[in-house]
Simulated assay, not measured.
Amino acid sequence: MNPEVIPLHQIRAMYDAHTVRLYQAFSDEIADSALASGRFVSPPFKLERMTWVKPSFLWMMYRAGWGLKDDGQRRILAIDITREGLDWALSHSCPSHPDEGMSREDWTKLKDASPVRIQWDPERDLFLQPMEHRAIQIGLSKEAVQRYVNEWICRISEVTPLAREIHALVQQGRVVEAKSKLPVEQPLQ
Rank of each mutant, 00 (worst) to 15 (best):
P3F: 12
E4W: 04
V5N: 11
I6A: 11
Q10H: 05
A13R: 01
A13M: 03
A17V: 12
T19V: 15
V20G: 01
A25P: 01
E29P: 00
E29A: 15
A34Q: 06
A34R: 06
L35Y: 06
A36N: 09
S37F: 06
G38S: 09
R39W: 00
S42V: 03
F45I: 07
W52Q: 06
K54A: 09
K54G: 11
P55N: 05
S56P: 04
F57H: 05
M61D: 04
L68G: 02
R75S: 09
L77Y: 05
R83E: 00
G85F: 03
W88P: 00
S91V: 02
C94E: 09
C94F: 02
C94M: 12
C94D: 09
S96N: 14
S96F: 05
D99E: 14
M102C: 02
E105H: 11
E105L: 10
E105C: 00
E105S: 07
P115H: 09
P130E: 07
M131Q: 15
E132R: 15
A135K: 03
Q137I: 08
I138H: 01
S141W: 01
A144K: 08
V145N: 13
V145I: 15
Q146N: 09
R147V: 03
R147D: 06
V149L: 08
N150R: 14
C154D: 13
I156A: 08
E158Y: 06
T160V: 08
L162P: 02
I166Q: 09
H167R: 15
H167P: 01
Q171H: 07
Q171A: 11
K181G: 00
K181V: 03
L182K: 03
L182W: 09
L188T: 06
Q189V: 12
